[in-house]
Nucleic acid binder design. Sequence first.
DNA 1: TATGAATGAGAATTCATTCAT
DNA 2: TATGAATGAATTCTCATTCAT
Lengths: 197, 197, 197, 197
Amino acid sequence: MPRTTDGDGTPVPRRLLAAATRLFAEQGYDRTSVQEIVEAAGVTKGALYHYFGSKDDLLHEVYARVLRLQQERLDAFADADAPVEKRVRDAAADVVVTTIENLDDASIFFRSMHHLSPEKYRQVRAERRRYHERFRALIEEGRRAGVFTDEVPADLVVDYHFGSVHHLSTWYRPDGPLGPQEVADHLADLLLRALRP
Amino acid sequence: MPRTTDGDGTPVPRRLLAAATRLFAEQGYDRTSVQEIVEAAGVTKGALYHYFGSKDDLLHEVYARVLRLQQERLDAFADADAPVEKRVRDAAADVVVTTIENLDDASIFFRSMHHLSPEKYRQVRAERRRYHERFRALIEEGRRAGVFTDEVPADLVVDYHFGSVHHLSTWYRPDGPLGPQEVADHLADLLLRALRP
Amino acid sequence: MPRTTDGDGTPVPRRLLAAATRLFAEQGYDRTSVQEIVEAAGVTKGALYHYFGSKDDLLHEVYARVLRLQQERLDAFADADAPVEKRVRDAAADVVVTTIENLDDASIFFRSMHHLSPEKYRQVRAERRRYHERFRALIEEGRRAGVFTDEVPADLVVDYHFGSVHHLSTWYRPDGPLGPQEVADHLADLLLRALRP
Amino acid sequence: MPRTTDGDGTPVPRRLLAAATRLFAEQGYDRTSVQEIVEAAGVTKGALYHYFGSKDDLLHEVYARVLRLQQERLDAFADADAPVEKRVRDAAADVVVTTIENLDDASIFFRSMHHLSPEKYRQVRAERRRYHERFRALIEEGRRAGVFTDEVPADLVVDYHFGSVHHLSTWYRPDGPLGPQEVADHLADLLLRALRP
DNA sequence: TATGAATGAGAATTCATTCAT
DNA sequence: TATGAATGAATTCTCATTCAT
């Protein structure tokens, strides 16, 4: 039996990824040493480099997972069978909830992107762009349907909302007065209010 | 003649600060070496350590300058003699304009805060908090006056707007289609729209 | 069916040896990783360690093959039925031709010998010595026959010639103006000229 | 007083260079760690990287010194006021003597050149080429004067001789039967004998 | 005020080798 | 015969900071 798992049965690559995610979020990418990661994962450096080409690679994997997750959820909400207003509200609230539920990934996302190698950076930006475009298309659909104002450029509206999503990792505390769903509802509400004609 | 200035007449500490600001913004705090900073400023390491206690100190000075500037401007707009709606709109737009005009500082701000020593970090957070409170007070004033909705917590509204301000350094490009003032007007407009009762 | 051969029918050990020879020559022994060798040979590390005890072993095998080859050829030329002058000339030219035809082995030989384990190093030196002695005996035979000068120690003469042979891998280029045989004839000629009484 | 020297008064860079030269010659470039070098020189790693950009740089400096020395000596002998035969003999013997007197440098030279960065490698090759050309010009001068044979290409003659010079580090032992000058005289003699018309 | 040589701890990465299967 | 995950030690290099001058 290849020792791909350890005492707890979790495969080594996943253990490494989990440890890296937590540490990158807590201390930042640069402040986290490979040594810390492997210690937290309970393996040796050699094992890390057996599975990941570099520290940078590890960061990229964190991103890939988040990007995939968010894109899937947005697509599901956007393609739902409901009035555009509701679809926007649901999608806007959902991204808040999932961001709060994965605050570590979010911190990393908005703070460490520039640590990726140029090539991987471009790749992440491109996927990010796709996400942005999908959301913008939704806004424009509502605008054409006459339920949203067209006084503000749709791009700007998208960045407005996602700005607040990114910002969550700066101020949101699990032990604060508002739960994820409440925050999500409020932020989606602010967006919809701003979009009223 | 003490050589506090150089060919261009700019005092050494300011030259160092300018070089550090640019480099921190371009490469991040951790990726910027003290050596690079002193080379960019045209001085030697000894000089840097003569004026600043540490690399961390340099970062703190960057923050101090931005915080002071923004607080002053917010106070001025908030204390103006005008209807609360206008004061909120003006303040909200102004922070966008000055952020765009100092995008380097902004990048550093939202990306490198966690590199400060715990003590300085607390200090910056406290000043940041004062800023947030002042803005929130303005929102609540409008709310009491009945011109703003009270369906969303004021704190959340403030974070909503500042989220989009932080986000600017991620997407704003000087050579893009919108100038600073246009972006500012749109974003302030979105805020005011969301606040409509 | 044991998979000692692959698509091309070449047995695994030979494939490994060929890959190692090429890579050692191109990059040097230390710069070549075991991983590179097994990839070039299309096998895995386990296979390599099945056939060879260590990386060092692989190097030793390369030597063994060359040494055996050269000794056989020298013996053949030296034992031929011809005047000593001709036998020296033929042997001297032949070692040049075979060296040029195996330039990779030659590069390795003169650059990587010191990477062998002490024990294998001694062994190679001993075989090398035998080769040297055989050539020297030939020179002395000619000297006793009065066809070669005895103004220069025979050992030195041998080293003189083999120095130029070793040097071939430094300057000889297959696409240069001289073919292997031409170079060989010239170098043998230089040796014989020097040996004229 | 800056601590550029230590107990023995030798400046740090020179101490490093001396240690590196000895270790590279003894063990080869790849087998010598930076740690060993700084320990042998009695300084810390930081000091090494203060003076030299990389381990490769250190190797390049070793080369630069040898190349400069040999070129100067060749030029002096070649430009002397004497018959061409004598100038060739003197130059040929001198390179043997100085090579034996700096056998460490020579070992490094012919064994570690390929460890240089491509750029530095080209540079060393170019300087090496100049040396070769100078010697070749001398041979051709003698040929035109009718004192040397023209049956063998001059380039080949030069490589013939320098092959034996390179080879010295393989077999010459200070405690052997022949002193540097004797070896030099014999090897120069072999060259001149080969060149006889 | 300012220099720049020197430190020393720690960074990421590589690699030959082993071993359970 | 062969796999490939895992080890652990070693490698080169970086860097904030100090300090004698």
